[in-house]
């Protein structure tokens, strides 16, 4: 990998700072998929201390949120803003972008991977040789390539977008657009839900029930593997989200506008 690619470490709990080494110049911390896993001020503070002590840069990860979750995030945004130092906030919810925009110009919004809706279902891989080239091209790009959308993002101070490492490859060229790209490796998200099957999952009587209820973070205890012959790779289920693993970083991504690799040492929940 060339020297102009930044390496960032993605963690969802302070314990995972154990994966830090000097190859990383940035820490990503937080949660993208569940507002019940938004870190506390104390947890954020501890990670920020580490970031400061090691002269690193920082990115806060945020999920899609209800009004309650937004209130929790606004406390963290206020904490970050009070530091009066530039840092990034990955938003996976357009409402969170609104909050960031009202907060402080020290907070740099970054468009999260949930807002880039490229198809990730592994079953698609069976069809890439069977469908017209136009369809294959469709699955390898997204609306980020649209100049109108790029202008819109820049008007809203968004100059970075996060992408998953898709099995079908990415054919997107944002070089010269003013928007840089990050690639998340190795865990790509496929789908997410608020009807979390880990929530109450251990409780007798909940085997056939679902609901949106407060949880005990059961997701932190379990990682599931889901296999089916029609999927070329297994799905990984953790909490309310399904992922797959793709460790192979494509060649030549710098020429497409990628300037950062975000490494996820653990399933990002």
């Amino acid at each position: 990998m060339k020297n102009n690619i930044e390496h960032a470490l993605y963690i969802t709990c302070a314990e995972d700072l154990k994966y830090y080494n000097t190859k990383y110049s940035r820490i990503y911390f937080g949660n993208e998929f569940c507002e019940q896993l938004i870190p506390s001020e104390k947890e954020l503070g501890n990670v920020l201390d580490f970031v400061k002590d090691n002269h690193l840069r920082f990115t806060l990860l945020t999920p899609y949120v209800t009004n309650t979750g937004l209130e929790k995030l606004e406390i963290l945004l206020a904490l970050l803003a009070s530091r009066a130092e530039p840092c990034e906030v990955v938003f996976n919810d357009w409402g969170v972008l609104e909050s960031i925009s009202r907060s402080s110009t020290y907070l740099q919004p970054v468009m999260g991977r949930l807002l880039n809706k490229m198809k990730r279902g592994p079953r698609l891989m069976h069809f890439l040789d069977l469908v017209p080239k136009e369809t294959v091209d469709y699955f390898r790009t997204c609306s980020l390539e649209m100049p109108a959308f790029q202008e819109f993002l820049i008007e809203n101070r968004v100059r970075r977008a996060e992408l998953d490492n898709l099995l079908q490859g990415i054919d997107l060229d944002l070089s010269g657009s003013g928007i840089s790209l990050s690639l998340y490796v190795p865990y790509a998200y496929v789908t997410t839900t608020r009807l979390c099957l880990a929530n109450q999952g251990e409780e007798p009587g909940w085997e056939e029930k679902i609901g949106i209820v407060p949880c005990s973070h059961e997701c932190r205890k379990y990682t599931f593997k889901l296999t089916h012959p029609v999927l070329p790779v297994a799905l990984i289920g953790k909490g309310n989200t399904k992922f797959f693993r793709n460790e192979k970083i494509p060649e030549g991504i710098e020429s497409q506008g990628f300037d950062r690799i975000v490494f996820e040492p653990e399933v990002p929940m």
Partner: peptide
């Protein structure tokens, strides 16, 4: 598809 879970997102749209 807009995934509006809060009032800020609704206002955004």
């Amino acid at each position: 598809g807009g995934a509006v879970f809060n009032s800020e997102a609704a206002r955004f749209f």
